[in-house]
Design a protein around this nucleic acid. Structure first.
Lengths: 110, 110
DNA sequence: TCAATACATAAGTGCCCACTTATGTATTGT
DNA sequence: ACAATACATAAGTGGGCACTTATGTATTGA
């Protein structure tokens, strides 16, 4: 079992690093292979792989191998613990957050 | 001026630290003086003050002096850049889903 | 089977930051 | 004015982590 607190712990930690957030945001626009990401950013390939591993452990992305390439993409349910954290602190909600939760509720069944 | 990206940068960084998140969560239940927070957590008073300063720079809390005490509380609008960040990326994902659905619909016709 | 490509992992390193103790500043009470 | 309390800031330190280079593992094609 794994608590929501532990999950949001790893998510906050994963998204705290600017490079990782940039990688995540890049993947949010569409899946990409490690090779592509390495070309986009000015860090070494191992650095990219290490960041991707951290994002994957946080449940934010997943990867699938296809031949020599490994394509990564965002995990749709990944950000849910973050939304839950915001909701728990009944923070300030706005119609934005309500709509976001509705979307997550629809997708969360996968 | 200050961009939303820069704001969410500081918010992610501020909330990445477990001690700071614990302080924020404690303040979310009600305002408290530095003295109270120092009593609640097992870290020194300077550590508490430093964390509060980081949270304040991130726009997550504010403090008001009342005599010798300084009472901190959460800043209601503080988490909004985080909500905006979530919403922004969720938009991209839903666009992808829409395209996927369109693609599946076309395949069904074939 | 051998070379080349793509990626992951190992190993090493420098820097940042989360703590500490020490000290400064503000406020209150006597 | 002086002592005591509450907090902020300064200064120093150890550990972690975000990089690097080096190497290992898969996969492909010739």
């Amino acid at each position: 079992m794994q608590t929501a607190a532990q999950a949001s712990d790893r998510i906050f930690d994963a998204l705290a690093d600017p490079s990782r957030r940039a990688l995540f945001e890049s993947l949010a626009r569409g899946e990409a292979a490690v090779k592509d990401l390495t070309a986009r950013f000015d860090i070494s390939q191992p650095a990219v792989s290490q960041h991707l591993a951290t994002l994957r452990r946080a449940g934010l992305v997943n990867g699938r191998r296809e031949g020599r390439l490994v394509y990564y993409r965002v995990e749709p349910k990944g950000l849910r613990p973050l939304v839950d954290w915001l909701t728990y602190h009944r923070v300030f909600w706005t119609e934005h957050l309500d709509r976001l939760q509705a979307l997550l509720a629809n997708m969360g069944d996968a």
